[in-house]
Nucleic acid binder design. Structure first.
Lengths: 331, 331
DNA sequence: ATGAAAGCGCTAACAA
DNA sequence: TTGTTAGCGCTTTCAT
């Protein structure tokens, strides 16, 4: 029923090896033969079976991507970068959501390995020894995107979160804000710790004292931003500036404050992180750290292709540049 | 090097058939044998090769998903619904972006067919004959999600766009708005035409005359919303209410109007479409049509599993309910 | 430039 | 309950 390479060979009076050659663009085929084969491929409507090819060649030209949540604006943008470069290099992506759940992550890695992916792109919280073990239980290359690996044993693409947080905090401090708040993300991830470190360093270097009470935790969501700012506003000494670990939470902070009658940035300056599309979809528009999500995904995928081709890789830990974009949520 | 089913069989002193049975949970295995096999699987670190299995069984337990743009909030949410149900039924998803480009779509369908996916989930603009042909060039089931198929030849999951637009328009009209605007999406897609039809019908049923000049077109983006509202505001008779074909554009409309000093909803009422998370991430919050994106994805995937299992399907064209949610962008 | 043939690792009859 | 065997559709030496 389905037409195979063998059918084509028979119809074209050549061997299946020859058909395979023309399908794969092998130059060792006489032009006339090639044409003949191409014709009967057309006639029969032959479509190569990638599964059979994968079994024979031990290459599937598909890579696995493990992502916390594709419906998050941040990761969706990252995924787009991955996908575009993957397409460029003729790879397909098997995409799965992990919700940053470690067991799920481990299980997904295994499932992708079973499917014989040629490589894995991993986005998540932290990389534990178990992750590393799981990765090494097969020899396919792995690249981390926007994900921290404390041991530095796995190639990765990130920005310098500590420096970014430091700069954002300094920016706010330099404007004369004495009382500052920080809405951090879920606090047990390394990336979040880096942001915290940067925040602290800015105070330290300016010999300013930092109020730990003004450091709150959210889950990166809009609602948690509203919640956090409400807590801040209920305090005796309301901060005049807030650095927020994600844009979406920052929107929550802005609206939460506005809903209580505070003026942004006059009463409170708000600074975000990521520069997702949300940053300009709010009034006042959000000053934030530009983290090139799309590029992180794209570079990570590109890096992975190099590993998959066994090319020489100059730097295994890529740190992409970040910068501050000043908009109207800060003075 | 890689351990195969054969290695396990040898080590466990059974045939590969038995190992296969154990791996696939076939009950016809003596518990003792099963245990023995399971043990040596553990010892050897055997991992089943899904590609080989796919070749032998002609099932890959992966489905292809063709989506216009994963970085769009709307589609990302849809994709999450698809993914969750796919996981539930042990399927993996090969995800690709089409940018609604027909050639790309056709090519992606082909690529997925080559990879022997067990089914295809398609999201896009319209379904042309070429699409249908391409789909039928293989016998794998296809389900459309949030995508219009004029011929109704392919199973699909949608809401009633015409009715939704009709209700939104009526809602605004019933409030006494005489001059209304409509910011539509790219106008050559069927879904968009449905929305237009609903808009028109609302006027007709109320015997109100509709001003075609107040119907503008955007590309669903925030910026195009700003642009469109600026055009509206430049007119002699500025409308007092605007129905916008997507939430993101609606945010643009709100901010564009606010930036020019208009009060929402006092001067202009704004009504969106989709009820993406954006709808509550703006001030005033957006009244909109609730389109259950996640559910559309989930239901579409569920439907696809039925077709893949050759189960009986009661309704091939699923129309999910929609509703209006009134927030503060309308009076 | 072309063909023959041996797998790739597994499933699924069919036997036993 | 277990084993034998013939493919699944292709790639890839190795000959010719």
């Amino acid at each position: 029923m389905t037409v195979t390479i063998y059918d084509v060979a028979r119809e074209a009076n050549v061997s299946m090896a020859t058909v395979s050659r023309v399908v794969n663009g092998n130059p060792n085929v006489k032009p006339v033969t090639r044409k003949k084969v191409l014709n009967t491929i057309q006639e029969l409507g032959y479509r190569p079976n990638a599964v059979a090819r994968g079994l024979a060649s031990k290459k599937t030209t598909t890579v696995g991507a493990i992502i916390p949540d594709i419906s998050s604006i941040f990761f969706a943008e990252l995924a787009r970068g991955i996908e575009d470069i993957a397409t460029m290099y003729k790879y397909n992506i098997i995409l799965s959501n992990s919700d940053q759940n470690k067991d799920k992550e481990l299980q997904l890695i295994n499932a992708m390995l079973e499917k014989q992916v040629d490589g894995i792109l991993f986005m998540g919280g932290d990389i534990t020894d178990e992750h590393v073990n799981q990765f090494q239980s097969s020899s396919v290359p792995v690249v981390l995107a926007a994900t921290y690996d404390e041991t530095n044993s796995i190639p990765s693409v990130n920005i310098d979160y500590e420096a970014a947080a430091y700069e954002a905090t300094s920016f706010l401090l330099d404007k004369g804000n004495k009382k500052m708040g920080f809405i951090s993300g879920v606090d047990d991830t390394l990336i979040n710790k880096e942001k915290y470190n940067g925040y602290v360093r800015a105070f330290k270097e300016k010999s300013l004292s930092l109020n730990e009470d003004h450091i709150l935790t959210g889950d990166y969501s809009y609602d948690s931003g509203i919640e956090a700012v409400n807590q801040l506003l209920a305090m005796d000494d309301v901060p005049t500036a807030v650095f927020v670990a994600s844009d979406e939470m920052a929107l929550g902070v802005i609206h939460g404050a506005q809903d209580k009658g505070y003026k942004i940035p006059d009463d409170i300056e708000v600074f975000g992180f990521d520069n997702t599309r949300l940053a300009t979809m709010v009034r006042p528009t959000l000053s934030t750290i530009v983290q090139p999500m799309y590029d992180i995904g794209a570079v990570a995928m590109r890096l992975l292709t190099k590993y998959m081709n066994k090319e020489e890789v100059e730097e295994k830990k890529v740190v992409l540049p970040h910068r501050i974009v000043e908009r109207t949520s800060t003075k």
